[in-house]
Design a protein around this nucleic acid. Structure first.
Length: 452
DNA sequence: TCTGGGGTCCTAGGACCC
DNA sequence: TCTGGGGTCCTAGGACCC
């Protein structure tokens, strides 16, 4: 039986941490953690050296520091990650016109759309190795794991099994046997909740899932998930590789260093967030009809309120006014302590219909707020650990730490080899930030997603 | 000192329409 | 006073993914 597809999945190994080690020679071979450095931060990516200590993505940062106090804890340089990601996607674009990026560090490629004709095991292994070599060359040394299979499920499973720095090809015909003994958690769409529900049905492995009664699955998981899982358990996966993905929502959210109990303190945050997503919306050339305000409370309970307008809008002021109205609707929750506030946009259209927009503006006079020029976003420190800087006398380097009016910099670059550390006054006029700028042709606003 | 941020899709109930 | 279905839109919440 001929498979209906050949899919390649590429996943850069410990991507953010690997970029840091590439550009900071003194960190090579050492535990490196990229993530939120504030009191409520979590790990985005831990280098393999840090994973030895049990560090994982999404782990609270304070726990990571406890487990591995000697790691380098860095804030992350998204300009550098985007630049590297761009180079990788260009390599994949050379394989096939059908490339589906999942995040900065991951993508599917439809190999049949790329004119590949030899799908023998050996040919696919060679292709995957060639891709890895090209990625390494194009990114100045980053390693990727590559999997090839007859569907997205198989390709992704293969690349997971290839990690780190390897290749796995799952040949057509092997699929059903290959996944039988895996835990259900290996099936895409099965997260912690679904895994637990399945466990209650006595379903632990993919083989168990095949035996489960369809009625029981439906009752426990709902019709859509039940149907999907029943098919994936037999490796039936016809999800196409899709190059163009339409953005359906834009949002921004902030977790505060301390909980807020005062609604008035949240209003400038709403206004600033409205301006942030308004700018992104206008850059995308769209208008939005639905505005959502989200609160996460001290006890982690999450609440959202949304309003759909008659017409589509794109001005910061309108977004802010509606969001502030929604905040007012939720004011009774604020006394419980607000841990996170978010503002989102959805219901996009290509054209405005401002004439139809009157619901919010009628109410808006009373809700008028002045826009603060700047509201500190997260940590407002000028120099964050890991940031690129340059000094007139000492050259380029990166921030090791800062505080008390001083900055400690390690002066080294990807090409220099490990370099010396110097502590300087934070206001040293010879010292400047030196960020890697994202590629200039980057029109759309990519999400900053964690690397695996 | 517990637990990020940016997304997608699904569900379920109510309004409204035919 | 009784009793229908189906379809779409909107809202709120939840699971999942990276």
């Amino acid at each position: 039986m001929r498979p209906r597809a050949f899919v390649l999945h590429l996943d850069l190994d410990a991507f953010f941490a690997a970029v840091e080690q590439r550009d900071k020679p003194s960190l090579r071979g050492k535990p490196v953690v990229v993530g939120g450095l504030g009191p409520r931060g979590v790990v985005s990516t831990a280098s393999y050296e840090a994973r030895v200590f049990g560090l994982r993505s999404a782990m609270p940062m304070h726990q990571a520091r406890r487990l591995c106090p000697n790691a380098a804890f860095l804030a992350g340089r998204f300009g550098a990650y985007r630049t590297a990601s761009r180079a990788v996607m260009r390599v994949l674009g050379g394989l096939s016109p059908l490339v589906e990026p999942l995040s900065l560090d991951e993508a599917y490629v439809d190999l049949e759309a790329g004119g590949q004709t030899d799908f023998s095991h050996q040919a696919l292994i060679e292709l995957a190795q060639a891709v890895r070599a090209q990625v390494k060359a194009a990114t100045n040394g980053l390693t990727a794991s590559v999997g090839v299979g007859s569907s997205k499920f198989m390709a992704k499973l293969a690349s997971e099994q290839a990690k780190p720095d390897g290749v796995v090809v799952i040949d057509p015909g092997q699929e059903v046997d290959r996944i039988a003994s895996l835990p259900v958690r290996a099936v895409p769409g099965v997260g912690p909740m679904t895994a637990e529900r399945l466990q209650r049905l006595g379903v632990k492995t993919v083989a168990d899932l095949r035996q489960a009664l369809p009625g029981e699955l439906r009752r426990e998981l709902g019709p859509a998930v039940a149907k999907m899982l029943a098919r994936l358990a037999w490796a039936e996966d016809d999800r196409p590789v899709s190059a163009e993905r339409v953005v359906k929502s834009i949002s921004v959210e902030d977790t505060f260093a301390q909980d807020h109990f005062d609604p008035a303190a949240l209003e400038p945050v709403v206004a600033r967030d409205a301006a942030l997503i308004g700018a992104r919306l206008r850059r995308s050339g769209h208008f939005a009809r639905t505005i959502t305000l989200k609160l996460k409370l001290a006890d982690f309970a999450s609440h959202s309120r949304s309003r759909t307008l008659l017409g589509a809008v794109d001005s910061d002021e309108t977004i802010a006014q509606v969001a502030l109205d929604l905040l007012r609707d939720q004011a009774h929750l604020v006394a419980r302590g607000v841990r996170l506030l978010g503002v989102g946009l959805s219901g996009f259209t290509a054209a405005a219909q401002e004439a139809l927009f009157e619901v919010a503006s009628a109410r808006s006079d009373e809700t008028r707020v002045e826009f603060p020029a700047t509201v500190a976003r997260g940590r407002s420190e000028h120099y964050r650990p890991g940031d690129d800087v340059t000094h007139q006398d000492f050259g380029p380097g990166w921030v090791w730490g800062s505080g008390l009016g001083r900055v400690t910099v390690r002066f080294e670059t990807a090409a220099s080899g490990p370099g010396p550390i110097r502590t300087l006054p934070a206001d040293d006029p010879k010292l400047r930030p030196n960020p890697v700028l994202p590629p200039p042709d980057e029109e759309e606003d990519e999400a900053e997603v964690e690397a695996g």
